[in-house]
Amino acid sequence: MASFLSLRDAIANEVRDGDVVAMEGFTHLIPFAAGHEIIRQGRRDLTLIRMTPDIIYDQLIGMGCARKLVFSWGGNPGVGSLHRMRDAVENHWPHRLDIEEHSHAAMANAYEAGAANLPFAVFRGYKGVTLPEVNPNIRSVTCPFTGEVLAAVPAVRPDVAIIHALKADARGNVLIEGITGVQKEAVLASRRSVVTVEERVEDFGPRSANAVILPHWTVGSIAVVPRGAYPSYAHGYYKRANSFYQAWDAIARDRETFLAWMDENVMKADAGREVA
C-alpha cells in the first residue's frame, strides 16, 4: 500500500546497503532527486540496474554507491561519455565496478518478464555479436514448436524500483504520461518501490481511458518532489535541461571537479524539498 513520506524517509525505509536497485525513466522522468538522496544517505554496495545509466548513475558510481552496474547504453545522450562510469570501468575509481551488459531489447524484455513473474525473457536477438561471449547471462532457448533458437536472459527482479512520475492522487495512485519507458514494468517487477511525483492531487480528473496508472496497492513509498526529475524532464511541467547535459561533460571529466560539484550541489543541498 502506498504511503506518503518525506523523500528522506522514503529512501531510508526502502533502500538498504547491498540492494539490487532499478531507477528507471527513459530520458524522461529520471528520478534525480531520489538518486541524490541515496548518495546523501551513503548507501553502499548497490547493484544498479538501468537501461541508460545517464547522469544519475554517473553520480552514484562516482560517489562510490555501486558495486555492480547492469545496463544497455552507458553514455551522455547526444554529448559523449559518462566519465565517472568510464573511470570506474577503466581505472577502478573510486573502486572496482562489475558490469553486466545487455542490449536495450534484452533489458526491456527482462523487465517485462519480471513484471510477468516469469524466470526469463525470450526474444530474437544477439545474433552475430560479441556480447554473449562476455556476459554469461546471455543464453539461448529452443522453441518447442518450431525449433528456432532464441535469445534468453534472466528476468529483472530488483529489491527496489525507484521512479519519478507526474502525479499521485489522494489514495496514492500514480499517473505517468509522455514517454513511459519501462517504469511500469520496473515497479511491477520489484519487491519494493519508491515513487517521487511532481504533485499530489485530490483526483486525477479527466484523462485518457488508457493513461498509464500504477494503482496505489502496487506502490510502496511516495514522496512529493517538484522538479524531482531535473535535469531530465517531466512532461507538461518542465523541459529537459539539454544545456546541463552538455555542461556535465566538463564537470564529470575530472575527479576533483566532480567531487566539488557533488559536494556543493548534492551533499549540501536540503534533503527535503519534501512534504506529503
Binding site: S81, E101, G125
Partner: peptide
C-alpha cells in the same frame, strides 16, 4: 575486461541491425 576506451555500448543497435 581491461578496456583502453570504454564506449557507451550497443543500446538498440544489436537488434536494429537484424
Amino acid at each position: 575486461d581491461q578496456p583502453k576506451v570504454r564506449l557507451p555500448g550497443g543500446g538498440g543497435a544489436p537488434e536494429i541491425a537484424i
